[in-house]
Design a protein around this nucleic acid. Structure first.
Lengths: 201, 201
DNA sequence: TAAAAAAGATGACAAATGTCATGTCTTTTA
DNA sequence: TAAAAGACATGACATTTGTCATCTTTTTTA
């Protein structure tokens, strides 16, 4: 019997998955949460064979939970289940040596299948995810530029950005100018739209 | 036996819900789609007793499908199932006289329960939804202001906005000034952030 | 129907934004 | 180690943005 814990903040999906997996006669759902913090605590005490983690959850993301579990040397197989094919997410997941990374854009059969495979020692990365990461327009912004973009995404003006990143406001404007040129745009809003579309932000 | 059609673009939830509802011995899932257009066509031919519609789907939204079904006088009970507690969505759903409006933030039990109740003739609006709409910060922007905000959300500059809304650029700037004052902000990006946070946009 | 409100426009101004050329220090790299 | 590349800064400039007072023309409303 394989014990499974589900952390997913969307109730409907959480309860639906719990019900379905529980139907399989070799699986047993031993707990579930809609909150990362709660999930981490329960997983460390319940020690399920498998933890299915959504990424975007309140308090602690699924990726943070995965990382903590690995730091604590918990011998638990982890499946990351998410909507987002973000490169950053994927890299973080790989760094935490998760056993599978699936998109919610695949049917439940695939989830069941994946559980069986990782119990077998396989590592499963969703093919769509991998291809979408390979085909993704790669982010041309430097770390500093990205940082500055994140600041003006919050609505800060040049001066406020300069204060938080400890640069002169002239330099900040230079960086923004560079951001606009790299994104082929002429305003902060346009640049933000491009960045969001390509998941750079 | 009650026949049910499910339109939901997230495969995982779609297949999970199908499986669960199909387990109930008085329900039968007679079809499902991950695309609004396809859903509309199949629903008109299959004529299920109940259609469960997600809102944000490719090609045709669940709200559009609902509206079309009502225009075609299809005697089908409709459940809108969505993540978003947007007032606009809700109003459109009410206008199309849907039989229920549920949030994905409720468990599957509630969905099953709701199906039984609407078969009984009841109209079900998710309590969380209703309360979040009542407590929502109401949008202080006029229709024109909102229109202009939607334009600059796309990254258009004053001149481009003026051309699309057929106003002088000076007037556009006046409207934007009014938007900023109503939102208590000093830049377009800040105003956009406020609008998004409150679901005005 | 007279008064009030709404919708749109103009002009003037200050502030913010975007662009460029240029300069100074570090770090890298060949 | 000399040359190149990076990171940060400055100043100057044109443009865009945001603010305001004022004006005209429609539409509403009392």
């Amino acid at each position: 019997m394989t014990t499974i814990y589900i952390a997913e903040d969307q109730e409907m999906l959480n309860s639906a998955l719990s019900a379905i997996l529980d139907l399989e006669d070799d699986f047993e759902i031993i707990g579930n949460a809609t909150d990362g913090q709660m999930a981490f605590q329960e997983i460390t005490t319940l020690k399920p064979d498998i933890a299915i983690l959504d990424i975007e959850m309140p308090n602690l993301t699924g990726l943070e939970v995965a990382q903590e579990l690995r730091l604590n040397h918990q011998n638990i197989k982890i499946i990351i289940l998410t909507t987002f094919a973000r490169k950053k997410y994927f890299e973080s997941a790989v760094a935490s040596e998760v056993n599978a990374y699936l998109l919610k854009d695949s049917p439940t059969d695939k989830l069941v299948d994946t559980i069986h495979k990782i119990l077998d020692g396989q590592i499963i990365y969703d093919a769509n995810l991998v291809s979408s990461i390979l085909t993704a327009v790669k982010n041309p912004l430097t770390a500093q530029e990205l940082k500055i973009m994140q600041e003006f995404a919050l609505g800060k003006n040049t001066q406020e950005i300069a204060e938080t990143v400890f640069l002169s406001s002239g330099t900040v404007r230079n960086y923004i100018s560079s951001i606009l040129s790299k994104t082929g745009t002429h305003s902060r809003i346009e640049a933000l739209n491009i960045a969001k579309k390509n998941n750079w932000i």
